[in-house]
Simulated scan of single mutants.
Amino acid sequence: MEKLNKLIELRKELHKYPEVSGNEIETGKRIKSFLKNYPPDKLISDLGSTGFAAIYKGKNPGKTVLFRCELDALPIEEINIFEHRSINKGVSHKCGHDGHTTILCGLATELYKNKPETGSVILLFQPAEEDGSGAEKVFSDPNFKVLQSDYVFALHNLPGYLINQIVVKNDTFTCAVNSLIIHLEGKTAHAGEPEKGKNPTLAIAEIITEFNTLIQADISQENFCLITPIYIKMGTKAYGVSAGAGEIHYTVRSDSNLQMQAIEIALENLAQSTASKHNLKCETSWIQNFKANSNNDKAVEIVRKVAKMNHFELLEKEKPFTWGEDFGLFTQNYPGAMFGLGSGLDTPALHNPDYDFPDDIIATGVAMFYQISKEITNAY
């Protein structure tokens, strides 16, 4: 009970002092300070800039399993009024990364007390998940490349699901998500002589219309494709001027990394051909890329086994979640799985200003991760 109280205290401290993607310096210091009481055999700092890894080793060689959490918060103003509410204006933990991180710290307390019999357990504290850059930064770090793992695991809390319920799914768990920026360059003109310029209005309207024809919004069907307009800009509030430039931003979702590649090419070609038709220059770029989490069958079976061993309620998810999570880059490169941890039917939705991670699910997350580590490191 005392150990759980310390974890809850840590979670609330992390919640009170949130930092956005790439700025998780003080967050990292707080976690490392906590880990000094449960020192790992090796600590690798500055992974992907502000990330780090704590490694707990067994006495003998064996399999290595990696567990990952996220350090960053969101640029959302918190409206909660409890004591541990965010003190950083415009920034708050509205996705539960404070809780995910605390669960990994709870795993550290178990591993320090009971080292793996064989092999190693890596606890990866990853930066910048929210903007999709963190996993890539960690992967490209030379110090991470030496940490080869046999399996990788992560969890995500799920508002709207029974508290402490374990949610599993084979194959795609979360969708591939990528964001597209289309910049159209024409020529300004006097609003009374628009024919002397190149106004992007009709091209923007045509792109929006054509993109809509590619949407297949039913995730239960093949070729799921969601194309959501996010932001449009054209011209200025100068009523005597016919606009000469415009910009459209989209978020694109697919339940397959391979399908996402095909969608990206189709959208780029469509934007370019439409711009050419209207005598406009067109530049396209992609940002905030999230690979689909492709769960490995054997890894998911381990999650199922551990949930049943702990007598946790298990829910088999039929369809992927449509949100993105950059742990997909890990499941592309290693056998592994992301699973869900129910955080309550009445808990506010993720990314909402009144959300707060429920401390009641910390112990469940720790128990799941610790038993998964035993299943893998103790396997011969």
Rank of each mutant, 00 (worst) to 15 (best):
N170F: 14
Q126R: 00
E110L: 05
K198V: 09
A73Y: 06
G132I: 10
L123E: 13
A135E: 11
G119V: 05
G90F: 05
N80H: 09
A154W: 15
E185F: 11
T101A: 13
Q165L: 00
N88M: 01
L184Q: 01
S179F: 14
N143A: 13
L107V: 07
N80G: 01
N178V: 11
D72Y: 09
D150C: 11
D131Y: 15
L74P: 00
C105R: 00
T109F: 14
P127F: 06
I122E: 02
T101Q: 12
A176I: 01
P159V: 07
Y161C: 03
H190L: 00
T101F: 12
L111W: 07
T102S: 10
T172Y: 10
N164F: 03
T174N: 03
H190R: 12
G192I: 05
L162W: 10
S179A: 12
S120P: 03
K137A: 15
A203W: 08
V91S: 04
I103C: 12
C95A: 09
V177Q: 12
E78G: 09
K115F: 02
A205P: 00
P127C: 10
V152R: 12
H183Y: 06
N114V: 08
K94N: 08
C175Y: 03
D150A: 07
A73S: 14
P142M: 06
I182M: 08
I181L: 14
I87Y: 03
P159F: 14
G90Q: 08
V167H: 04
A191Y: 05
V168Y: 12
G106D: 03
N80E: 06
A205Y: 14
V167Y: 03
G90R: 02
E117S: 10
T201W: 07
E110R: 08
H97T: 11
G186R: 04
G197S: 09
D171P: 00
L162M: 09
S179G: 11
H190N: 13
L107W: 13
H100C: 13
Y151L: 10
N80R: 14
G106M: 03
